[in-house]
Amino acid sequence: MGDLVTVLNAAADHDRPGWPPATPRAAYVWRANPYPGREGEDYVAYLDGEPVGRLELGFTTLDNLNSAHFRIDVVPAHRRKGVGRKLYDLMVERVKAKGRNAVMSTTMWSLPGIETHDGGAGPAFAAAVGLENANLAEVMRRLDLSTVDDAALDALSAKAQEKSAGYRLVQWKNHAPEELLADIAYLDGRLLADAPTGDLAIEPENVDADRVRRSDEIGVIHGRSGYHTGAVHEETGRLVAWTTLSTQPGETPWHAWQFITIVDPDHRGHRLGALVKVANLRYFRQHEPQVKVIDTGNAAENSYMIAINEDMGFRPKWAMQNWQRDL
């Protein structure tokens, strides 16, 4: 895993400066302990004994069984030498061997106000190998916790509380309470149905309580500390909104990811997204004071969630585009 991580970090340092670095241990644990419904393969390309490229393949095993995800990284000094093309050909071979007939990937992308660092290499390569733009640009935003405006968070929370009578907050770390597992599964399964997906040929996932429980267990094995806040509808007792923040204290203690935030469509209009996100940020900071920055990503067209993130202090850092093709 050391050579793979060397390539990954060299490409990331060039193409998306500031991206949290990978470590060999984290890469090994990730591959040795996949999340439910996921499996993958990794390959490293060498020139004269030096690691210069890597291929990552991801397969879903419970949903979307006809497609695969891939990522190719090439060390900047060894680009335009055919390394990426050879890895792409290997990808096609392996995906077909798995009985899949479609692939998806992402590259860096240029959007107004967001600097690109790869010189357009990613999109150029995608076009050269016949990938089609899936019209799903994503923007990664970063929150510098040294600049958090607590007064602004107070105001955002107060507005949310005004609209959210009849709901109460619940919070937990790592393992979800058993009584909430079914509701979490429902919300998690709605993500691909509700979030913008552009032209991506992708289906919603079927998530159940066992899958949620196992995902929580795998996160702990990976060394992740996950902090969750949800909103319960008091009349029905259902969890109808949910958000999560996650960090790996043993690998990148200065960094965290803001992952899923979702609200049941039947309960939108009560500012539950803002309510749970602000509460969860404060919950997280109480327990992980060493974290300096939090990154998150949204579809560029997801104006509602972007507005909340911007109000909380997240600012654009990188942009990406999704690509796909049939094989």
Score class of each variant (00 low, 15 high):
199 D>H: 06
144 D>M: 07
261 T>G: 06
269 G>I: 06
175 H>C: 13
82 G>C: 03
203 E>R: 05
274 A>P: 08
327 L>P: 06
200 L>Q: 01
2 G>L: 10
87 L>N: 05
152 A>G: 03
51 P>H: 00
125 F>R: 01
31 R>N: 14
272 L>D: 00
190 R>C: 13
81 K>T: 11
97 A>Y: 06
118 D>K: 08
19 W>F: 14
171 Q>A: 07
127 A>K: 14
320 M>P: 10
243 T>V: 00
79 R>K: 05
125 F>G: 03
11 A>S: 10
223 G>V: 05
257 W>K: 14
142 R>H: 05
92 V>S: 05
285 R>A: 09
287 H>E: 07
32 A>N: 11
91 M>T: 05
320 M>W: 11
269 G>E: 01
260 I>V: 12
155 A>F: 14
119 G>I: 00
51 P>S: 03
312 M>T: 07
209 A>L: 05
310 E>D: 12
232 V>K: 00
304 Y>G: 11
133 N>Q: 09
126 A>T: 03
289 P>Q: 02
217 E>Q: 13
285 R>M: 13
205 E>A: 08
230 G>D: 02
69 H>E: 14
172 W>Q: 00
32 A>R: 04
159 K>W: 12
274 A>V: 02
287 H>M: 08
323 W>R: 12
7 V>Q: 10
248 Q>D: 15
310 E>C: 06
44 V>E: 11
90 L>R: 02
